[in-house]
Design a protein around this nucleic acid. Structure first.
Length: 457
RNA sequence: GGCGACAUGGCCAAGUGGUAAGGCAGGAGCCUGCAAAGCUCUUAUCCCCCAGUUCGAAUCUGGGUGUCGCCUCCA
């Protein structure tokens, strides 16, 4: 398997540290607001990587943190008269629901920053002792110039970074490039060797990654906007504290754009996952994201989503015949093509082409095609379960059609039998009234030689 | 200004040296009472422009043009 490593800017053969085991860390959300389509792309992308690694037989440990100590959370708490915990707990639940609704797998470990403070303090102490960091009036800063590899990930020459760096009012940095490991905060802070304060954002990931996965990990992933300064700073902290390499493969996903601009909270041009799910289902959103390579920008538009919806529907509605549970799919050509595509730095658009090939074959009753399709598409996180109507909705639909006909029916079966009879008598008006009325209730009737079936639109 | 990426049919998008995958939309046909779904066929002599390397380039090199991102919180 080959993956693009942002550190070397090359596609490299993936070799895990420990044979057959993968330790992956993904920078998780700061929980203070709704997650939007940009987050969905990120977490769906890495969900697919997680699923695919498992599909390949790796024993994967996936850790994704929750940042629950942060300026924005505190601001929100103050504004709403709540505690920071109340705010972060509420928004974590929202986030968790969104992730579930998108059919992403829960990471094996989902640590909260506030529960990992001990590890953070220990790393900061270590950095101070080793001379990589210094305390200044209750703050602790990292000495960037002590770490010669600084800028390697973002490919930023240090002098360029220097020209952009500033010292904010109230900060006591030795150098504008230095960044905070710990910040004095007497109101919301925690006890530390440097007084009451709270951790800087970057140290949180270094600490949680080390605590749960170890000093050197296989994969660290996140949005491309985290490359600088977040991931650059993580490398500096972790490698100076641990004296060894931090991450073997740095993976970054591209952005979702809207009107050719990055979708982001600060620009305010975002669509929340909740809003989106009212219009499109999880499979559609996943398909939309996977049609593009994960490193490329993806332009959001309703047209693109509608196209994705039509495409994914075709795939998931493939004819379910000739299901062969005993089939060894790894022997099939399509499996080989699928794996070849996915092994090539997650070429999901190519992998989807294989799935459409299988869809066509299944629709033509080719033996085993549906079985292979089902297993491969499931490996990408597509869900084949058809939407269902509740008993109430079904009753409502039957009642609605009954009223239209001026008859009294109790069940769908009765309706379909009645329509069958009408069709045999060439009473098209009645037959079409039933079909149109059901359609209005979200039920589609499909006539074929074998009879009529109904399904949810 | 520094750094990084991208430009392929109406739309989305693979392909990165050997003659343009796939999806959506459109057209024709089959099936159907009509639909829906499905099936078959069909839609780029050409891949932003110019020059070069090569037997051969969308794919490599150089130069343009355009778009986006990072350099501040950000997935």
């Amino acid at each position: 398997m080959r993956l693009h490593n942002s550190y070397t800017n090359r596609v490299e053969e993936f070799v895990p540290i420990e044979e057959n085991k993968v330790k992956m860390y993904v920078c998780g959300p700061t929980v203070y607001d709704y997650a939007h389509l940009g987050h969905a792309r990120c977490y769906i992308t890495w969900d697919v990587l997680y699923r695919y690694l498992k599909f390949k037989g790796y024993d994967v440990t996936y850790c994704r943190n929750v940042t629950d100590v942060d300026d924005k959370i505190l601001k929100k708490a103050e504004k709403e008269g709540k505690t920071p915990e109340e705010v972060s707990q509420y928004w974590y639940k929202q986030f968790d629901n969104s992730m579930k609704a998108l059919n992403t797998l829960k990471p094996d470990i989902e640590p909260f920053a506030t529960k990992t403070l001990g590890e953070m303090i220990s790393i900061v102490k270590d950095l101070v002792n080793k001379g990589y960091a210094y305390e200044a009036d209750g703050d602790v800063y990292f000495r960037v110039k002590k770490f010669p590899a600084y800028g390697n990930l973002s490919k930023q020459p240090i002098d360029q970074l220097e020209s952009g760096a500033r010292i904010e009012v109230g900060e006591h940095k030795e150098d504008p490039l230095d960044f905070a490991l710990w910040k004095k905060d007497e109101k919301f802070g925690y006890k530390s060797p440097w007084g009451v304060g709270r951790p800087g954002w970057h140290i949180e990931c270094s600490a949680m990654s080390r605590k749960y996965l170890g000093k050197t990990i296989d994969i660290h992933a996140g949005g491309a906007d985290l490359i600088f300064p977040h991931h650059e700073n993580e490398i500096a902290q972790s490698e100076c504290a641990n004296g060894c390499k931090f991450v073997n493969y740095w993976l970054h996903n591209g952005f979702v754009t809207i009107n050719k601009e990055k979708m982001s909270k600060s620009l305010g041009n975002f669509l929340t996952i909740d809003e989106l799910l009212k219009k499109y289902d999880a499979n559609t959103i996943r398909f939309f994201i996977l049609t593009n390579h994960y490193r490329m920008p993806v332009e959001f538009s309703d047209e693109a989503l509608a196209s994705a919806q039509a495409g994914v529907k075709r795939m998931l509605n493939a004819k379910r015949t000739n299901i062969d549970e005993s089939l060894d799919i790894t022997k099939t050509d399509e499996y080989k093509q699928f794996v070849e595509a996915m092994d090539d730095d997650l070429n999901t658009s190519k992998a989807l082409a294989v799935l459409f090939d299988l869809t066509n074959k299944a629709n033509k009753d080719e033996a085993g095609a549906y079985t292979v399709l089902f297993k491969l598409a499931s490996a990408l996180g597509f869900c084949f379960a058809k939407p269902e109507l509740s008993a109430e909705e079904l009753d409502d639909a039957v009642r609605y059609v009954s009223e239209k006909l001026g008859e009294n029916f109790e069940t769908m079966e009765e309706l379909i039998a009645y329509r069958k009879k009408a069709r045999e008598e060439k009473n098209w008006a009645v037959a079409d009234t039933i079909r149109v009325a059901l359609d209005e209730k979200g039920i589609v009737l499909k006539d074929s030689k074998e009879g009529t079936v109904w399904e949810v639109k």
